[in-house]
Design a protein around this nucleic acid. Structure first.
Lengths: 226, 226
DNA sequence: ACAAATATGATAGTAATACTATTAACTTTG
DNA sequence: CAAAGTTAATAGTATTACTATCATATTTGT
């Protein structure tokens, strides 16, 4: 099993970095400690200078891997969705029932990482927290079209498209599969954030997996033909 | 009618400004031209210095009204949701059927402003575009708890709570009214953004009001008891 | 084994940002 | 019409988000 996992590499579009961070010790350190640092102080407060101090390397060395902190966030996001695609594949392959596959997909989209907290040395719990709190900043800005051309959202699109095809299997006449999926993904992220900071905007429950139950129920009811 | 509208003032928590911008010509100019400028160059590129050049007033004068550009965005957001509450009241008062009221609420949450494009000199179309593209930045940061204490999200919470009570009228046993409403509000904003920049993440349609139809269908099916 | 290529470290520098401070001129109000 | 408050004009600061340069390892091809 270990070997199988070790053979998987998350492919990232080379437009998102200047030098592949997986190609050197320093590069890996930048990514791993970068995740820790963004997770602990937030993306606005994060600077390459601070990261340089953490890893005892000059700021300028980090700029040799990533053009800007914005591109660094794009890279982390792309990595996350590449990893999610891999998880989706693992969770759904050999599952015959489309309903069961959809259920697994919704679970993946809405629940926090629990097991497998490390993968290639990446702290996935922290990475997921970063995606929940910061991912919308990867597209809500004026560089979005350029980033899109650079392939920054490719894995996310592929993930959505994979789940969409499960929905189409269940109800081929349903017209809004992608809308429904991104509503669930982005919604789940925001509800997790609201539960922690703005509870009156959500309905936090103590029962386990209430978020994925809410969204699973919503999805199943919505895609039913009337 | 004109008189009725003129008598309405959107109340904004005083923690969000240093000096009430509605109390002077300069204050109003800051808000009105600020909306224009953020709308045209985006919030990241927006600075008080640039706004100062637009209105031919020094940067420092703007700082007498707003502590920071972040607080300015909080102010605009609070104003928007105050106005939305007012619209919700107008649209639902004297409507007996809860279903009809819910429909109007979902329409308000998901559709663009069309008529009434000016209200107290504020360009509402541009303000709504700002909310769609930038509002998540008002809470996705480390100052969220402080901002919450300052009442920055009060009107948004009130709006959500008002719509939630309509849902409770229709189905008193439904457990997630607030989650459902914020999923719709934030979802609709993102889908509008995706339709323009990342079409593969949505299902854009040419038919009018497809967004509100999608979300209305989703809401009605979801709150049905099984 | 050793020159050449490549990666990193150390240091310095720059334009712009997000403010704060000060003082003078102008305007309103009691 | 003087006092109080508001705005203009200008200057200044720490930090950010980079870029540039050059020296010092380290790796690699032959």
């Amino acid at each position: 099993m270990k070997n199988l996992i070790a053979s998987v590499k998350i492919a990232i579009n080379s437009q998102l970095y200047l030098k592949d961070p997986e190609s050197s010790e320093l590069g890996l350190k930048i990514v791993h400690k970068g995740i820790d640092l963004i997770n602990s102080i937030g993306f606005e407060e994060f600077t390459f200078r601070k990261l340089g101090l953490e890893i005892h390397s000059p700021e300028a060395s980090i700029y040799r891997y990533f053009e800007s902190k914005h591109k660094f966030l794009l890279y982390l996001n792309a990595w996350y969705w590449g990893w999610m695609e891999y998880r989706l594949l693992l969770a759904t392959s050999n599952v015959v029932s489309a309903e069961k596959r959809l259920e697994k997909a919704v679970f993946l989209m809405t629940e926090g990482v629990e097991n497998d907290p490390n993968f290639h040395g990446v702290n996935l719990v922290k990475l997921q927290e970063i995606v929940v709190a910061e991912a919308s900043k990867t597209f809500l800005n004026r560089k979005v079209d350029q980033a899109n051309q650079d392939g920054a959202y490719q894995s996310y699109k592929d993930f959505v498209s994979n789940v969409a095809s499960i929905i189409e299997e269940i109800n081929p006449t349903y017209k809004y599969p992608c809308m429904l999926i991104t509503t669930v993904v982005e919604g789940a992220h925001q509800q997790r954030f609201f539960a922690e900071h703005l509870p009156r905007l959500t309905n936090k429950q103590s029962k386990p997996h209430y978020l994925s139950k809410f969204y699973m129920d919503l999805v199943l009811k919505t895609i039913k033909s009337n």
